[in-house]
Design a protein around this nucleic acid. Structure first.
Lengths: 69, 69
DNA sequence: TCTAAATGTCAAGTATAATTTACATTATGT
DNA sequence: ACATAATGTAAATTATACTTGACATTTAGA
């Protein structure tokens, strides 16, 4: 799964730490998600989408390989 | 978090088992998600939204209490 | 009413999301 | 060049998503 969190943060001019605070997770969690290191929960994806006023699909995009299983 | 999976399944006339097969998880997982028993992964939410041709937000809705932490 | 499909539930196990602490690296401004 | 903020990374731990197998209950059709 790809994501555009870095771009959205840049638009809003906020740091990973600030985003972390807004959605109430650790800074490292935001960093790992932004770098595609894991498959975050849906509640967290909805919160991030809410912060950026975007749809979840706008920010998180499935890749072919995500369907492998 | 609330969801409308049951309604979407009814529209498409498919069972929990069939949806499970389409998104490649177990039937019990679909059942638990549909009953709001846990916070599924974003990849799975995107796959379910894809099956129903809907946005993630159309199917999964944050509740106030989800912001508690 | 009988049968089968569909749904609900439970317990035990595995996989992985998310936290914490800590430190290294890279970017930014003065 | 220096200082500081921001980002990347790692290991250890905790919380929880998801699986499997099994069984109970509800629903729908013949």
């Amino acid at each position: 799964m790809k994501n555009s969190i870095k771009v959205e943060r840049a638009k809003k001019n906020i740091t990973q730490a600030q985003l972390a605070e807004l959605v109430k997770v650790s800074r490292q969690t935001i960093n790992a998600i932004e770098l595609g290191k894991y498959n975050l929960s849906t509640i967290l994806a909805l919160k991030i989408a809410h912060v950026f006023n975007q749809s979840v699909q706008d920010i998180f995009e499935l890749e072919e390989s995500d369907w492998d299983s």
